[in-house]
């Protein structure tokens, strides 16, 4: 386990260099911001591994290459396994002071990539795994993933006479990763960029596997104005449907503990994917939120 660096990362000392530039991400893309900020923290000695998904689709279209550091597209299930190979290869070749960093979406992490991620954590691979969570398969046209929240309309969780969007709860990836005894895990949101930066910096110093699950709204898939990405990402935290936390040395901690929540209804109904929800659906979501927070307070702070 690395020591937490005392120098606090801030806007003032964050690198001016851009490592993800000229990409074809949609206007207002939260995922590309998460990736851009992460590489500023990890720097030029990074090997970025990006599976099939939004960020690979927008970043490497021959001859337009948007990464300015080393980067490679992995297979869809293969983010963590390719990261393991990159790290092992670099180690075996005697390369020092590098970061092997993965950027996978929610489907690439919680669905098809979970097996490889689990194995890499089990081996305590010295890798950093960032899950940019835009809550559906966006690149293929907004289909439901295991991280799509209950009630969200996607192309494969439609709204009709029988169903009102996704019927499953968002898979608790952060807790699943933590249950492996991972060296470091955190949740973050691009609505709280300084909290995210601090977690990135910590992850860069961990001698083992780090996992950061960053909440990255998608204006196209969620149905809100492109200018609202940061606001939506912040509101998700402020209404209690997302939370900012860390796991290290076997302990969970909150890095942001709201004393009261803003309106869940306002957060949800501001996005077209939730606009079909009826009062009972909204109350159900609030009930689940309250249950989660009571669990957090009971289990993390006992």
């Amino acid at each position: 386990m690395g020591n937490r660096q005392e120098k606090k990362i801030s806007i003032r000392n964050l690198s001016d260099r851009e490592f993800f530039y000229g990409h074809k991400g949609c206007p207002g893309c939260g995922g590309s911001l998460a990736l851009r900020l992460a590489l500023k923290v990890f720097g030029e000695r990074s090997y970025a591994v990006v599976p099939a998904g939004c960020m690979s689709a927008v970043g490497f279209i021959f001859p337009q290459m948007a990464f300015t550091c080393n980067a490679i597209i992995s297979t869809f299930p293969g983010t963590a396994s390719m990261l393991s190979g990159v790290a092992a290869g670099a180690r075996a070749l005697g390369i020092k002071d590098f970061h092997a960093v993965g950027f996978a979406g929610d489907g690439g992490t919680a669905d098809i990539g979970l097996q490889a991620l689990s194995g890499a954590i089990d081996r305590h691979e010295k890798i950093i795994y960032i899950c940019y969570d835009n809550e559906a398969y966006m690149n293929t046209g907004v289909q439901k993933s295991a991280l799509t929240p209950a009630g969200a309309r996607t192309a494969t969780s439609p709204v009709g006479n029988r169903l009102r969007g996704a019927v499953t709860q968002k898979k608790p990836m952060f807790e699943i990763v933590a249950a492996h005894g991972v060296d470091y895990a955190a949740t973050a949101s691009v609505g709280y960029p300084l909290d995210y930066l601090r977690k990135l910096e910590y992850a860069s110093q961990v001698d083992g596997t780090s996992y950061i699950h960053v909440f990255t709204p998608c204006p196209i898939g969620w149905g809100y104005e492109t200018s609202d990405t940061i606001a939506v990402a912040k509101n998700a935290v402020d209404c209690g449907l997302w939370y900012l936390a860390e796991f290290s040395n076997g302990r969970f901690t909150l890095t942001h503990n709201p004393s009261e929540f803003i309106s869940v209804q306002d957060y949800l109904l501001g996005q077209s994917r939730f606009r079909h929800l009826q009062e009972e659906d909204l109350q159900g979501i609030i009930t689940m939120r309250d249950l989660k927070w009571s669990n957090i307070h009971r289990e993390w702070f006992s």
Partner: peptide, 11 residues
């Protein structure tokens, strides 16, 4: 394999 940061068109 192609050089990183190679931009040929704008957005």
């Amino acid at each position: 394999a192609f050089p990183a940061g190679h931009l040929v068109d704008t957005n």
